[in-house]
Amino acid sequence: MNPVSAKYSRKDTGWRLFLRTIVARAYPRIIGQQREMSWVIFEVVMPMLAVISYVFVYRALEAPQDYIGFVVMGGAMSAFWLNVLWSMSSQLYWEKETGNLALYIMAPNSMMAILLGMALGGLLATALRAVTVTLLGSFMFGVTYEISSFFQLFSVFMLAMIALYGMGMMMASTFLLFGREAWHVANLAQEPVFLASGFFFPIKFLPFWVAAGASFIPLTLGMDAMRQLIFSGGFQFGLFSVQAEIYALAVMAVVFVASSKFLLAYVEKLAVREGRITESRR
């Protein structure tokens, strides 16, 4: 057998297939971005427009400089929320529209691996945009950072991302059942979440139970903890202690990722039974 035949006749199964599926689904998200850099421009420009607007509002109100930093951080983190909404939650709906979803389900791979690949690719690609927004915002508005604990900051960020993308995976399976309303539902989940999660102001200023309820969105606690860790006066704006928020994020990360597996299996079965896998309700 020649080397080419040998390479392509080898069948991956089990964990090897699972991992290869993750890499295969993450690949277009990361490499595709390098091939079409104009995406980066738009996905940096859109959050930057919001950042600039809110920074100027704070400047007009003569707010302390810390608030400018909060807006820059919120703008950077909004890239992750938009990515989860449009490229995770809605993704299976788009795949259905373009006819790929049936192929995913027919192929001998795990749908969970496809979702994990989407999450991994989306996370890495969006991280580049978030870093760009942070650098641009910091440079334009003179934001300075004073990190009190690199380890805690890294833990908070990673746990928030795992929980957030786990939530995205849960939502992706739910969106499988949607038709034309998918676009509207994703669209609806932008501003209300920006408000409830305190993207542009400390969440502490919302009524306690509203803030506590919004804490089920991982970015709420993630940003609250990050604000406390990277701004000199950040601790006075914290809703809970950083330690408590790390524990809560860890629980959410496990629960959301595990739930997404069960939800996906259930919804996939439901969608197959109701004939919604190939249905395109325009």
């Binding site: 509002v57 704070y58 707010a63 608030y67 509207h184 609806l188 501003e191 408000l195 542009f200 200023f205």
Partner: peptide, 20 residues
């Protein structure tokens, strides 16, 4: 749907204003 989105946008500004 038609109401929540714009009200949320306005509420962000209201809270920012109120905080400062």
């Amino acid at each position: 749907y038609s109401i929540i989105k714009p009200l949320s946008g306005a509420a962000i500004l209201v809270i920012m204003y109120g905080v400062i």
